[in-house]
Write a protein that binds this DNA or RNA. Structure first.
Lengths: 141, 141, 141, 141
DNA sequence: TTTT
DNA sequence: TTTT
């Protein structure tokens, strides 16, 4: 016993969430998240990007599939989990994922709406941010 | 002995940073930061805002005074410190502050530049974010 | 909108939790928590202690009242909340608290049992730690 | 750009740190860390352990090699990094590590001393905890 | 594979 | 491979 296993990320989705429905009816969503760090080396600005495998379960997966899309900036809180699997050649491999326990969209108001087909959105003012939290891991509205 | 004292905030500056230079030449900056939470009560969307007193020292204060302004969205990492002071009526009072150890601007590219007097900025595209990190607590460029 | 408000503490309880039952039957517990930091100044080891007001609600308050006592080492995750109140002289005052959302006892096995009146506890081996988590904010067993 | 990549762990070392000195004189240390979670399933207490690869650089590696040993309870703060390497069969593999930026021993006073060969240690009192922090990533004393 |  |  004795443990804290916590991950806090702010980054952009590299792809739309991929949603699967397991046999028991459980929903799982996953997507890659990029967190980038900028630092200075010999006067040049270097950007280093780290990619994370994000996994969400149940209600949180449902919310993610509805409100998160490729490119969005998101705060994610979760825990690390390394699991093994067999690839196509039956070789045992390991992958480390971040199992999300909570997420919040960081961005402008338009980022909080599910994408629509309609054109002609209202112009946005400079400082128009908003967010969406799902502390309970379930639908927030 | 034995202690972790860590605060993680993402919110908007309520005012421009207020910068002071202490006798020994040390720079201190401070500003209020709002973190808002939205939840559902009886079908209505309630927004609850919490205000935090942010304090930054030395190099981090210099960076803050240059790159942070009222309204900007920022990630702040720091620690809690409660200090006492005497108000004008000589009454002892307590205030809890977040002493920043690190911050990152979260927002669009324009948010990374110090404010300029020139008018006529270039139009921004929808999904234009960027950030600025100062892990070492000193000027990052 | 847009906010993350997160506090992570590891420290010792300064007192036993104080438990109150509100009118609606809701349980609230609170206790002071010390987080200490040791640093070096001119070759001398300086210890600086920060005190935090911890507040717990409902099921988490019940668990805390049962398993936490003065002196125990605990990991606490929560959020900052500043509230105002009137003191006995009707002066408006402010206090900043950490509203716990989760806690974990860090310590040896004996620290996980509610205190008993019986004497003569079993001797402990050198490296005997264990912990107790309450992720859901409710009774964990 | 735009990124926060933060990991917070509390767990026990599965092995003593393994220290290497790279060509340029840089020190790297690494060890496995176990974080365990206990939960209830059908009235049975289930313990699930997650293993993390911890990597420390430079001064932090030196401190770790001196003060951390197998079995000790430690708080670690760092960031995720996934790197690829070729195994003996020239197969490309990936491993995700936690690059530590800070650590603190959590435990009793005896846990803060480097291990000694002498026998006959002084008995410890019940509530004797202490800690050791290395915020700057360098030797703290 | 994101973002700037 | 830790810890209880």
């Amino acid at each position: 016993m004795s443990g804290i296993n916590k991950v806090i990320l702010v980054g952009h989705l590299g792809k739309d969430p991929e949603v699967r429905h397991l046999d028991g009816g459980v929903t799982v969503a996953s997507f890659p998240l990029a967190t980038s760090e900028t630092y200075n080396k010999d006067g040049k600005r270097i950007e280093q990007t780290e990619w994370h495998n994000i996994v969400l379960w149940r209600g949180l997966a449902e919310v993610a599939s509805k409100y998160l899309q490729k490119g969005k900036l998101v705060y994610i809180e979760g825990k690390l989990r390394t699991r093994s699997f067999e690839d196509r050649e039956k070789v045992k491999k390991y992958v480390t994922e971040v199992v999300a326990e909570n997420f919040t969209i960081l961005g402008r108001k338009s980022d909080f709406e599910p994408p629509v087909s309609s054109e002609g959105t209202t112009p946005k003012s400079e400082n128009e941010y908003t967010n969406l939290t799902d502390p309970a891991g379930d639908l927030p509205f």
